[in-house]
């Protein structure tokens, strides 16, 4: 009996996917289900009893003002941080791509924030934001009023977003460059033969061909901004998402519940994580549907 070409391809696909699937099921999905299991309990890793309490943790999550504050903040991280990062990185990538000399040098310049140690980054930026720091110095030279930056509940979250955008640029630029460089030169040649202007070429040829890259950056950008944690812990006042919870994110709150609260509220933390997970999953599916229509199915 001969398999059809179609069936043979199925078998190959499953064969290639076998090891990775086993990996994901055991290393990622399994522990995630375990976290879901924890969320149904009064779970404390240190205690001996971990009573089952059903959906009680979820009920409390929906009642928790700080959680919703963290949830709103998390949206701000996403809604401000993702577009800002994409815009800056696209502009810089287009610029870098036009360079002919010192290409490597310039790329390294823009990539360096991404590889600078997080401890160093947090430390230097905190200094730059202090009342006597570089930024306030510039403001006062321009005759503008000083800002409290990290100390002011109105600006602290944006001060942290500026850092995360700055730090993520190197990553996004490299991905954009990879996307731009993958655009077959013939397309561009053909466009210029047709007499298209720079803007037209960009809009009609570069952008559509860049779509998979943009989808990737939007989706991963949203996912990583929804999980922002380290920068808040190292930069916000007292490291707890202050002042007055103005910078706290869901993941930071989850971390506090699981590992800083005593006794540990691991079950409650897991419930918050599950809520966040469901939200991210929904957003991602919607994004994939809308952003990559056609390519997706």
């Amino acid at each position: 009996m001969r398999l059809t070409l179609e069936r043979r391809k199925w078998i190959w696909a499953y064969l290639f996917l076998a090891v990775p699937l086993i990996f994901f099921l055991s290393i990622r999905i399994g522990p995630t289900l375990f976290a879901f299991w924890m969320s149904l309990h009064e779970w404390d890793p240190i205690a001996l009893d971990r009573p089952f309490i059903g959906l009680e943790n979820y009920r409390e999550v929906f009642d928790d003002e700080v959680f919703w504050k963290a949830f709103r903040n998390t949206w701000i991280y996403v809604v401000v941080g993702v577009p800002a990062g994409l815009l800056f990185s696209l502009v810089v990538a287009l610029g870098l791509q036009r360079l002919i000399r010192f290409v490597g040098f310039y790329r390294v310049l823009y990539f360096i924030p991404y590889i600078t140690s997080l401890v160093a980054v947090g430390w230097v930026w905190r200094w730059m934001y202090t009342p006597n720091g570089v930024f306030n110095d510039v403001l006062s030279r321009l005759g503008l009023p000083q800002s409290g930056f990290l100390g002011d509940p109105g600006t602290a979250i944006y001060a942290i977003i500026a850092t995360t955008v700055w730090q993520g640029l190197g990553f996004q630029i490299v991905i954009f460059l990879a996307g731009l460089e993958s655009i077959p030169g013939d397309y561009l040649d053909a466009a210029s033969v047709d007499g298209a202007s720079g803007w037209q070429t960009f809009r009609d040829i570069v952008m559509p061909l860049l779509n998979p890259t943009i989808v990737f950056l939007v989706v991963t950008g949203v996912i990583s901004n929804l999980q922002v944690f380290t920068q808040i812990r190292s930069m916000s006042s007292a490291g707890t998402g202050g002042p007055l919870d103005s910078t706290i994110s869901v993941v930071l709150y989850v971390y506090q519940a699981a590992f800083q609260s005593l006794p540990s509220e691991m079950g409650y933390a897991a419930a918050m994580m599950v809520v966040l997970f469901v939200v991210i999953l929904l957003i991602t599916v919607v994004q994939l549907k809308f952003l990559s229509r056609g390519a997706y199915d």
Binding site: F24, I29, T32, L226, V254, A269, A270, F277, T284
Partner: peptide, 16 residues
């Protein structure tokens, strides 16, 4: 399924 594994923060997975 694979993509969804990105959506769980490492902090929640370290114990398992």
């Amino acid at each position: 399924l694979m993509l969804s594994t990105l959506m769980v923060p490492t902090e929640m997975l370290v114990i398992p």
